[in-house]
Amino acid sequence: MRFMMIVKSTKDSEAGVMPSQELFDAMARYNEELARAGVLVAAEGLHPSSSAIRISYPEPGGKAKVVDGPFTEAKELIAGFTLIEVKSRVEAIEWAMRMPDPHGFGEGEVELRQVLEAPELTQDSEALAKELEMRAQVTRKPRS
């Protein structure tokens, strides 16, 4: 299963201030560890929201409204993400806990989200039933 570790923005990341060399190295080491364990799928950092646009649909069925960045509320913005492929939720949590504090001055925040898998996206009840049956066949108890 895939998980996304989302690094939230801070005032600094929004201002385009680069992380310290120390933090940069720590992140590089962490990513290397993910890669060496074979779990790293993708990792990207994003530009500050000053170069972003936001498209919203305030009216149902209406026209799109476009607003230029920057956006306020840094904590609700995303500064980057790391996508990992792991066997279980606990493994994902363990990896997420090992990510270095992404900013290092009290504003660091990482959010761990699970990526939807195909069966969860389908509306076809017959297919879902089949899927569940298949899963039941191979259901495993957790390590005892």
Binding site: A35, A37, G38, V39, L40, E85, K87, E117, A118, P119, T122, A127, K130, E131, M134, R135, V138
Partner: peptide, 17 residues
Amino acid sequence: GSWIRPMLCDEALRLGR
């Protein structure tokens, strides 16, 4: 008839990576 990648594929891919 399953869309999920079976565990063995995931494990093989992880080992390969």
